[in-house]
Design a protein around this nucleic acid. Structure first.
Lengths: 189, 189
DNA sequence: GTCTATATTTTGATAGAC
DNA sequence: GTCTATCAAAATATAGAC
């Protein structure tokens, strides 16, 4: 792996762990095993490096989600597969975390990967919900975009609950709760 | 309002806007109109002041939520009232935001109000769901704790989606989506 | 491309006068 | 209680040698 690559992956890790404000160029250099000169040779500064790191994280996240959502099975099974996928709930979401950072939200270059990732995810989930409605899996009365937003929100909010509790369980509860609500045919009113 | 009070409320605002790492003593002093001396007279340092601010924010948040959840109406109506309450979705949650901050999560003094707020909220929502089940509003098969976690997660995750999009709409979609899933009796499978 | 030296500003706090 | 120095360390670079 090149020095440039190590700088990017170190920044990815640090942004995940400490956010943009909490990540210093010095910390990045130390984790990458590179000096000041290397970093400022390859990137114009912290925002430039962060943009590269966020772009890569967004790509990775999207690929991982697509692996579940585009897989085999019914719409419900694929959504369940996505929600039940193994995750380190206490680490939270690499991309969702950035939405809280005012310096990321304020910089169009940094916000773009965050915005695009969630726009894509909500769209993909909405398509799946609509597909499930056509197949008779889900009630026709559900709005696909609303349902998709709720599903994406449960994951992001589940991370918040887990980190607040210092325990993964609230994340899993939220996911189970959402899936139970979605499993309309299993319900007994 | 005393200088001490202004320091606390200024810190509450800045923690909400910029998080713990992004909030400097200097910024607090400027917003409060107080000098260094005043701040360090009333508080031992930034962590101490942040603890006071978070404690107050937690109290306020809990009171606001309780106003909706303990009000009149059926369980569904009260949950809907809570979810549809007027919120500035782009500002996000004062308390939930702190769960992302590693320095807050690492300090037991700072994490306590965050942990307690969500533990209370999930418990209160679970009681309401159970109440609704007894009344026949919700399917008996739902697990109250899971459902409560999903509802709380939708709000927290809704904020993430809204901030990522730079638009309140995804928050409202997520809330509508969750309420539609909860409204079991209105469903046509 | 990478390194070391240097520079400016901010952070988070202490000291001591009033 | 509040104010104005003062301070050591860190953040975020730039300069220039190799």
């Amino acid at each position: 792996m090149s020095t440039q690559d190590r700088l990017i992956s170190s920044t990815q890790e640090l942004l995940w762990e400490r956010g943009y404000v909490g990540t210093s160029p010095k910390a990045i250099q130390q984790r990458a095993g590179a000096g000041q000169g290397s970093m400022y040779h390859h990137f114009t500064g912290k925002p430039d490096l962060a943009a590269a790191a966020l772009g890569r994280s967004a790509e990775e996240l999207r690929a991982a989600a697509a692996a579940q959502l585009d897989g085999p099975g019914t719409a419900y099974q694929r959504i369940a597969g996505y929600l039940l996928r193994e995750r380190d709930a206490l680490r939270g979401c690499r991309i969702g975390r950035m939405a809280q950072d005012p310096d990321v939200i304020a910089d169009p270059q940094l916000r773009a990967p965050v915005e695009e990732t969630f726009a894509w995810l909500r769209g993909r989930l909405a398509d799946l919900v609509a597909e499930g409605q056509t197949a008779g899996e889900f009630p026709a009365a559900l709005d696909p975009a609303d349902t998709a937003a709720a599903i994406a929100a449960v994951v992001q909010g589940g991370y918040v609950l887990a980190r607040a509790a210092g325990d993964e369980e609230p994340f899993h509860q939220a996911v189970r709760g959402a899936l139970a609500l979605l499993a309309a045919d299993r319900r007994e009113p």
